[in-house]
Design a protein around this nucleic acid. Structure first.
Length: 576
RNA sequence: CGGGGUGUAGCGCAGUCUGGUAGCGCACCUGCUUUGGGAGCAGGGGGUCGGAGGUUCGAAUCCUCUCGCCCCGACCA
């Protein structure tokens, strides 16, 4: 392709709303263009990278035994009502009506459609397992889309679904898919790590996320430098506990006057004790009503873990801004804000983080204004709480597996795989007959991979001050041939070089514009072609042209034929 | 949904307070010079100032409503 005939416009200035590097660079390089919040056009250059990644994904999916199909983006509401997600999914689900006033959704994911398809097609264990995938545009009406392709509302995703007659069969496919994902990201030269994850709205038992480590990542992951344990912080467990011996719990519970101490920090300061010795009380509104969660004073409650423990759809922290809420808070919990605690609470359920289990001295809110209780004892002064893991792991916590202090990194979630189990096959009656003729629900897995997000992640991970540095396999073009000046021999040689590369099956781009060299070089760096060949009058007079890698910019000279041969070799080696 | 901000040429912005011919830089077009890391000079084209209503002799500017977009939070995977 020749630049002079291509649809591309690089920007010297950065669009004001571009927040992260990948978004800035992709917009400046003329790869994407924002049309509405979280909705982008993939311009020709950007689409080439997208298509190249799709091809890699196809190859790996096909190799893993998954068969490609394409489901509709628009789905009838009935299927979502059947699975129960019409009610459960919330406002992220874009609901639309057709001219007959019938309800539809623009698919954010396709469990319903695929389950419907398979249940009508497969009835026997003999036909299982089945693994299907598609690459398609999805829509999730995110509250706050941002970061360009990293968190769009409309986005391209590869989603795969597998159906099994047994857990073992699912486990096997899950492993195959996990390997396939690693292969995809490896081929894109992405530094990635699979981590344990929460299953969220999709549901199911086990789940892993594939994280590309990057400063701009929206997720925090914990990672054990010793045993490679990795997990999303929403899920990550650690085994911190009280490390100081406490006096025995023989003391009777005692009221402590603590005036004007609304926060846990206030209480700690007032009593002259570290917050880790105090008990922090959180109250959430759950499906079943107010629920109290006790955590160590220096820790944060983890809503995802609490939600999973309770099995509730709704979980809102009861907070007391304003008079109405303060009154309401006290009415529901039996204690004023800042002083609420488990002793005599109105909350039906009381949960406590396992780090509190066995603690002998509990300092808790007294459910009276300006009053805390010291030496409160579970089982004596208040009912034994339900213990569990309800806090978020932090840097330095001991690893659950080996005890090594954990590290925390930021990551971009580029893939997410789930063992769904029978969540959808139960509700939607996707059954099969087993060897003994018994009807059973199929066991399912599902596997998502964000195409646009992965491309953006590659840019986040590979760039410098001048622009993108594409990994060869997803570069929009592998080589740019840059002609310098209008000299006829320069143009002739550059054209020859370009055509020879094309003939060899190389994705070459010819910057044939009548522009100054500086402009062409800056643009080439910005777009990030892995290789560049420059043909200029001075060196051509010596029978030489120049080539260089974008990564290190070291310039190499040679006769045109040799340079072409070297570049072809370089491209092939970089393709993986 | 709550709080804050913003909307003026394809992009980045000034002008708004204090009403009076709509500006600057980049990009674009023409000419001359220039030509190995985003050139110089000269000339030029491009705007319903987000939209609707109002006040006024006169509105980008003041008032009301509305829409979009951005940021923080909540939310979501």
């Amino acid at each position: 392709m020749r630049w002079s005939r291509y649809f591309i416009n690089t920007l010297r200035e950065v669009p004001a709303d571009a927040e992260v590097i990948s978004q800035r660079l992709m917009m400046r390089a003329g790869m994407i263009r924002k049309v509405a919040a979280g909705i982008y056009t993939y311009l020709p250059l950007g689409l080439r990278s997208i298509k190249k990644l799709e091809l890699i994904v196809r190859e790996e999916m096909n190799r893993a035994g998954s068969a490609e199909l394409l489901m509709p983006a628009i789905q009838p509401a009935e299927l979502w009502m059947e699975s129960g997600r019409w009610q459960k999914y919330g406002k992220e689900l874009l609901r639309i009506k057709d001219r007959h006033d019938r309800d539809f959704v623009f698919g954010p994911t396709h469990e319903e459609v695929i389950t419907d398809t398979v249940r009508d097609t497969i009835n026997s264990y003999r036909r299982l397992p089945i693994n299907l995938y598609q690459i398609q545009t999805k829509f999730r009406d995110e509250v706050r889309p941002r970061f360009g392709l990293m968190r769009g509302r409309e986005f391209i995703m590869k989603d795969a679904y597998s159906f099994h007659s047994s857990r073992e069969s699912l486990d096997e496919t899950y492993e195959t898919m996990r390997a396939a994902y690693s292969a995809v990201f490896h081929r894109c030269s992405l530094d990635h790590v699979p981590v344990e994850a929460d299953t969220g709205a999709i549901g199911g038992s086990a789940s892993h996320e594939f994280m590309v480590l990057a400063q701009s990542g929206e997720d925090a992951v914990v990672s054990c430098p010793n045993c490679r344990y990795g997990a999303n912080v929403e899920k990550a467990t650690s085994k911190f506990f009280d490390d100081e011996v406490e006096p025995p719990a023989s003391q009777a519970v005692a009221e402590v006057h603590t005036p004007g101490t609304q926060t846990i920090d206030d209480v700690g300061r007032f009593l002259g004790m570290p917050t880790s010795k105090l008990v922090k009380t959180l109250v959430f509104q759950a499906d079943e009503g107010p629920v109290m969660v006790l955590v160590r004073g220096d820790r944060e409650g983890n809503e995802v873990k609490i939600k999973n423990h309770l099995g509730t759809n709704r979980l809102d922290l009861l907070a007391g801004e304003g008079l109405f809420w303060a009154t309401e808070f006290e009415r529901q919990t039996g204690g004023p804000i800042g002083y609420c605690g488990p002793v005599g609470t109105k909350c039906a359920r009381v949960l406590a983080d396992h780090s509190l289990q066995g603690r002998s001295r509990w300092i808790v809110g007294g459910n009276k204004k300006d009053m805390h209780l010291d030496y409160a004892a579970p089982g004596r002064d208040f009912p034994e709480p339900e213990y569990g893991d309800f806090t978020t792991a932090i840097k330095g916590d001991p690893c659950v597996r080996c005890g090594t202090p954990l590290e925390i990194y930021r990551g971009i979630e580029v893939g997410h795989i789930f063992k769904l189990g029978t969540k959808y096959s139960d509700s939607m009656h996707c059954d099969f007959l087993d060897e003994s003729g018994e009807r059973k629900p199929m066991i399912m897995g599902c596997y998502g991979l964000g195409i646009g997000r992965t491309v953006a992640a590659a840019v986040e991970q590979s760039h410098d001050d001048d622009g993108i540095i594409w990994p060869m396999p997803i570069a929009p073009f592998e080589v740019v041939v840059t002609s310098i000046g209008k000299d006829e021999s320069v143009l002739r040689t550059a054209t020859e070089v370009y055509e020879n590369l094309l003939a060899a099956g190389i994705d070459a781009f010819f910057d044939d514009r009548d522009e100054r060299p500086g402009v062409k070089f800056k643009d080439a760096d910005l777009i990030g072609f892995p290789l560049r060949i420059a043909v200029g009058a001075k060196s051509l007079a010596q029978g030489q042209i120049e080539w260089s890698w974008r990564k290190d910019r070291a310039k190499l000279l040679g006769p045109p034929a040799d340079v072409v041969a070297s570049v072809i070799e370089g491209v092939r080696a970089g393709r993986l």
